[in-house]
Simulated assay, not measured.
Amino acid sequence: MLVSVLTELIPLALVVALSPLSIIPAVLVLHTPRPRPTGLSFLTGWLIGIAALTTAFLAVSSLLGGLDRKPPGWASWLRIVVGAALIAFGIYRWLMRKKSAHMPRWMQSLSKLTPARAGGTALALTVVNPKVLFICAAAGLAIGSAGLGSSSVWAAVVWFVAVAGSTVAIPILGYAVSGERLDDALARLKDWMEQQHAILMAVILVVIGLMVLYKGIHNL
């Protein structure tokens, strides 16, 4: 059961992990005057934010009677709703891709963050970003409705947070180890994602939405 849940969480976590709005901020904070402490502070806030949101919706699932019981019927319908919403949002992002060709102004300001503000900023970004909030809600409810034991529930939460936060952790931890040697590669990555982020996000949302939708229909 646990392996099945961990497998199911991967596509949800990838929506967060592969989002340009996750990766680009992680790269931008490495262009601040103090990149190492700022990056590590940002990473800490980002992981705490994802964990807190997922745990909050896990608690909601517990109130609905999902923990330690046979998976309820509404869990499959939840997956269907989540999958359909992801597909619809992906199509919307595709249609609006030309209007989303430039990086938002608020994101450009991330390259001026201090270490003291980076953690709080990352935490706030997880809460105010509808996509992250929506996916963490889906993950928390999916974990809580799977009928897992207590230890398995928390293992699933840790797994989801690790995968969802991996693309923020990799450049920041890589820079902490390698330093300025990554500057050119990170700059190229940032430029490419700025140009392609709308198309990337649309494709990722539709593909993962189809996977989640199929899982929900299959379990009915």
Rank of each mutant, 00 (worst) to 15 (best):
A155L: 15
A139R: 06
A17E: 03
L220Q: 08
G165K: 06
L220M: 12
P104W: 05
H102N: 11
I172V: 15
G65R: 05
A142L: 15
A142P: 00
L125F: 14
P37W: 11
A52I: 10
Y92A: 11
T55H: 01
L189S: 13
P171N: 08
P35D: 09
L148R: 01
S111K: 13
L182Y: 11
W46S: 11
E194A: 09
A155Y: 02
R34M: 11
L210E: 04
A142N: 06
A124N: 02
V157D: 02
M107A: 15
S111P: 02
A13V: 05
H197T: 01
G147M: 04
G179W: 09
L64Y: 03
S22H: 15
W192Q: 07
T126M: 11
C136A: 11
Y92L: 12
L12F: 10
L63V: 11
A164Q: 06
L186M: 13
V3H: 03
S111W: 00
G144C: 04
M211H: 01
S150D: 10
L53N: 03
I199A: 12
L30G: 06
L58Y: 05
T54Q: 05
H102A: 14
L58E: 03
E194V: 10
Y175P: 03
L58G: 05
L148S: 01
H102Q: 13
E194D: 08
Y92C: 00
L58A: 02
S19M: 05
A116P: 00
V82W: 04
S111C: 01
W159E: 04
G49W: 05
D191A: 14
P72L: 02
P35N: 10
S61L: 06
I48D: 09
A75S: 15
I143P: 01
G66E: 04
I143W: 01
C136S: 13
P37D: 11
R117F: 00
W106F: 14
W46L: 13
A202G: 11
I208N: 06
I170M: 12
E194R: 05
S150Y: 08
Q195Y: 01
K215D: 12
A122I: 07
A198H: 09
A176L: 04
S41C: 04
L28I: 07
G147D: 07
A51C: 07
V158F: 10
P115Y: 12
R34W: 05
V206E: 10
K70N: 08
K190W: 00
I10T: 13
A13H: 03
V127E: 06
F134D: 08
G147T: 07
S145L: 04
G174P: 01
A85C: 08
F134L: 13
S61R: 03
P72K: 05
A155P: 00
R188D: 14
I208V: 15
L186F: 14
K190G: 05
I135R: 02
V60S: 06
R105H: 12
P130V: 11
R36Y: 04
L95Q: 15
W74I: 08
L40M: 12
S22C: 07
W94P: 03
P130F: 12
R79L: 15
A198F: 04
G149H: 08
M96R: 15
G39W: 03
L200H: 05
L18A: 14
L133Y: 09
A101N: 07
T44H: 00
A75Y: 02
A187V: 01
A75H: 07
I208L: 15
G147E: 06
L186D: 00
R34S: 13
